[in-house]
């Protein structure tokens, strides 16, 4: 009856098949959750700010809290001129947070009632990280011209050492989108597998019956604790992604400042 395969939750099922020129562009459950994450974020924020009052109500104060939180983060890690990237950082944070939180539903009003975590797929996190890096490089080159490349030539290094230091710096720069995307992906993947593994233990122990069924209370307690931890991770990873975006934007805005 119950499927205890912990990997099954990551399967992608097409909802509406669509093929353009041999490319499979089906609308999948992943797309569904992404659309939902965007829709819910926009909808909730629109509702929260629709009746703006001087003394904010509950929803409005949450929205303001979110705004202040991100604005402070951008200001403290990318400076005041980093605030022009506030929409980008806020969008990334809100999307990742909402996608992570939607992933916390084991069952969800989606086709087949499967919950799904968008950010547990590497391709999504890589796309987000590449977006950030393209913007950082594009804006850095646009604003600073060739001076942008000074981040590859740290000051105070003897000239012959640039032969080694510069390739290392370049690789270090190129590794940023990789570590940025892998961190988010691995955290969500590992957390959700762990949850399902322990949840599977409950079912298996319960199915054996007898005294072992009573032992099933232990994995149940574990799942409760892990769920709390996962909520923390869901928020923390969205935050980390946004903070690192700000730090990388700082490199584009002020090259050679570190």
């Amino acid at each position: 009856m119950a499927d205890t395969n912990p990997i099954k939750q990551f399967e992608i099922h097409p909802i509406a098949d669509l093929s353009v020129g041999g490319l499979n562009l089906s609308f999948t459950n992943s797309s569904y959750f992404m659309v939902l994450a965007v829709g819910l974020t926009v909808g909730l924020l629109a509702v929260a700010t629709s009746r703006a009052a001087l003394v904010p109500g509950r929803a409005q104060s949450v929205a303001e809290l979110l705004y202040e939180f991100i604005a402070d983060m951008v200001r403290s890690s990318a400076g005041n001129d980093g605030l022009k990237f506030f929409p980008l950082v806020f969008t990334l944070f809100a999307f990742i947070l909402m996608a992570n939180m939607l992933g916390m539903f084991p069952y969800f009003p989606a086709p087949e009632f499967h919950g799904f975590t968008v950010t547990s797929h590497l391709i999504i996190t890589v796309a987000l990280a590449m977006l950030v890096m393209v913007i950082v490089m594009g804006y850095g080159l646009f604003k600073n011209g060739l001076k942008f490349f000074s981040i590859f030539f740290p000051s105070g290094v003897p000239v012959p050492l640039y032969l080694i230091v510069t390739p290392i710096e370049i690789i270090s720069f190129l590794s940023r989108p990789i570590s940025l995307s892998i961190r988010l992906f691995a955290n969500m993947l590992a957390g959700h597998i762990l949850l399902k593994v322990f949840a599977g233990f409950i079912v298996m122990l319960g199915a054996t019956g007898g005294a072992l069924a009573a032992v099933g209370i232990l994995p149940l307690l574990m799942v409760i604790a892990l769920t709390a931890l996962e909520f923390l991770v869901a928020f923390l990873q969205a935050y980390v992604f946004a903070v690192l975006t700000c730090i990388y934007l700082n490199d584009a805005l002020h090259p050679g400042a570190h």
């Binding site: 190129l174 990789i178 940025l180 892998i182 961190r183 955290n187």
Partner: peptide
């Protein structure tokens, strides 16, 4: 867990980028 994940992915990212290049 978070710290380990951070350092792990930083190191992993570096090695992967170098290997790919």
């Amino acid at each position: 867990w978070a710290t380990g994940m951070r350092y792990g992915s930083e190191f992993f990212g570096g090695v992967i980028a170098g290997t790919v290049i």
